[in-house]
Design a protein around this nucleic acid. Structure first.
Length: 591
DNA sequence: AAAAAAT
């Protein structure tokens, strides 16, 4: 019987020393990172004093690099690869001055002042203004310094205290301003604290099953990669291990990484289901669930998979885990679906960055289908002339179809514009190469389908061209959000023609809300095509990414009413409840 | 209708 952490730690230590290859597989009983890898006596002793005091308890003592939880490979002792590339260690030691700091973060914090924030739900924990106010622990604080984060962004100021208080969260907030950190910090901190409680349930003893404590899901492979890279920085030398799993890449390498231990698993849904069905991963120990681009994850294409993962595998129920949903657009219908996954959650809406200053200049031009290519060429020529040192500024061109993407790429290349493309018909290798080549400026034009519309943080995208406009205004919002990142300026140009009539109203409204110049012809289009203008209608004003759907309509008396009333006769069982498909669809101007 | 996501 293993009844104490000392025993567990001892066992863990012996496994890690490679002496227990024949022992039982990993047991999903929680051992906090700072107790792993220790001998029995050591585990009971106070942790060594931290080398960088910041009034956190001894439990935050300096943590040795270790292998992760769920690991039985034994003897993995290798030094953790420094995700900062070795450059940042020095920076972490020194305190930089204000201006310099802000410059070096790459985030223009001035753009984050005066951002409207709205919260709803019961007992909302107060926001913080500095990282110092939050007890994240020494190791994490050091990584925050290494990342050169000086002060929390608005979404972090609100979301982190909410998460640290153990509350579920539905957050409407822009990416590129620290959204990943907003859910990673509390997860890492919580895992380190050992807040994750022992789950009293006998595990099925799959031979090489691993038991992550946190699961982060995202809708595209590249976004999962990006989250993984960021999370690794945040968890460097915390003892918390982050592993990523996604399709299109050899599974064996991912399996090996998993076997080395995993605390936080970042994944796309398909590959995760595969891993679950192979019993290589169990969700029994999940204490934290985060869905990035949550509205996308719950739309028609994804919902069944997500439901399967969250509700039909071995994930603990909502009340037994902490769930955080993030997106910049949150239609009411999706909020309703999402509320199934949440328990007494807090809704958080953070207004757009630069809601008054408009960091993204949006232009719409009327361009017939047949003129689009030459029009694009004109734009590219013009900006080449303006470009720094005659170089083409990074331009992201969105098209509707995969074939269209290939065709446009070839045409651009033939016309001496170095372009590449990313879409779902390309191999994962090609996709990753394309993204790297674009980011590096090697191929300054990237033609993309909506695979690249969400969440991807590509610094220095100067221009987003909607060569083909999407049918849904939310997609437009996500696409243009690839520029104007981190509080910097950006330009978005859309080619509009009769085929886009159904988007006219929503587009005109959106641009108006963002204080953009709306061409007269577009207003006329909008007036003409607005009757019954369906799902593209937005509402709730331009300040927020969304409003808490619990506050809308007849169930606004109090958040809890919604849960207790079984959708019976209280007046919102009908389509009126959440707008019959197009009501106040909640969107923000951003991710 | 298209795109994404497992092999």
């Amino acid at each position: 019987m293993r009844t104490s952490w000392a025993d567990l730690a001892a066992n863990s230590a012996s496994e890690n020393a490679g002496t227990s290859n024949s022992t039982a597989p990993s047991r999903p009983v929680y051992v906090p990172p700072h107790l792993r890898n220790r001998g029995p006596s050591e585990s009971l002793a106070p942790a060594p004093p931290s080398n960088n005091n910041n009034n956190v308890g001894s439990r935050w003592g300096a943590l040795p690099p270790r292998n992760g939880w769920g690991n039985r490979s034994g003897g993995w002792d290798r030094r953790e690869v420094n995700p900062f590339g070795g450059q940042e260690d020095a920076a972490a030691e020194e305190e930089l001055g204000g201006e310099e700091q802000q410059e070096s973060t790459g985030i223009n914090f001035d753009a984050y002042e005066d951002i409207p924030v709205e919260t709803s739900g019961e007992n909302v924990p107060p926001a913080v203004n500095t990282f110092a106010e939050i007890d994240l622990g020494n190791a994490l604080n050091q990584n925050i310094r290494r990342c050169k984060y000086v002060k929390p962004t608005p979404v972090q100021r609100h979301a982190i205290p909410i998460s640290l208080a153990g509350r579920d969260l539905m957050a409407c907030a822009q990416t590129g301003s620290g959204k990943t950190a907003a859910f990673c910090f509390p997860i890492i901190s919580g895992i380190m604290r050992g807040q994750a409680q022992v789950l009293q349930r006998p595990p099925p003893r799959g031979v090489r099953t691993v038991y992550p404590l946190a699961l982060v899901l995202s809708p595209t492979r590249e976004l999962s990669m990006q989250i993984h890279e960021e999370a690794r920085k945040f968890s460097y030398q915390t003892g918390v291990r982050v592993v990523v799993a996604y399709g299109g890449a050899p599974i064996n390498q991912q399996l090996r990484e998993l076997e080395r231990g995993v605390d936080i698993l970042v994944a796309t849904p398909g590959r995760l289901v595969d891993l679950l069905e192979r019993a290589r991963v169990s969700l029994q120990m999940i204490r934290y669930l985060a869905l990035d681009e949550a509205d996308r994850m719950l739309d028609m294409g994804f919902e069944p998979q997500i439901r399967k993962i969250v509700e039909q595998m071995d994930m603990p129920p909502a009340a037994a885990r902490q769930t955080m949903l993030f997106s910049a657009t949150f239609p009411k219908e999706i909020q309703r679906l999402a509320s199934d996954f949440l328990s007494n959650y807090i809704f958080l809406a953070v207004g757009r960055v630069g809601s008054s200053t408009d960091l993204i200049v949006q232009r719409v031009e009327y361009v017939q289908e047949s003129d689009k290519r030459s029009h694009l060429m004109d734009l590219l020529h013009a900006q080449k002339a303006n470009g720094v040192q005659g170089k083409q500024a990074l331009t992201l061109v969105f098209v509707e179809t995969k074939k269209g993407a290939d065709a446009l790429e070839h045409w651009l290349c033939r016309n001496n514009f170095p372009a590449t493309t990313i879409h779902g018909d390309r191999t994962q290798q090609e996709r990753e190469l394309a993204l790297r080549s674009f980011k590096s400026g090697n191929t300054p034009i990237l033609v993309a389908t909506d695979v690249a519309a969400r969440g991807l943080d590509i610094p220095h995208v100067a221009h987003v061209v909607n060569f083909d406009l999407p049918n849904d205004i939310d997609d437009y919002v996500h696409r243009i959000g690839r520029t104007g990142r981190a509080g910097k300026k950006g330009l978005a140009t859309a080619f509009f023609n009769d085929n886009n009539a159904s988007l006219a109203r929503a587009l005109a409204d959106l641009m108006q809300e963002a204080n953009q110049e709306v061409p007269d012809w577009l207003s006329r289009f909008a007036a003409r095509s607005s009757f019954g203008g369906g799902r593209n209608r937005r509402s709730g004003g331009g300040r927020f990414g969304g409003r808490d759907f619990r506050r809308e309509g007849s169930f606004s008396r109090g958040g809890s009413d919604y849960y207790s009333a079984g959708n019976n006769s209280s007046g919102y069982g009908t389509s009126g409840g959440y707008g019959g498909g197009y009501g106040p669809g909640v969107t923000s101007a951003w991710d």
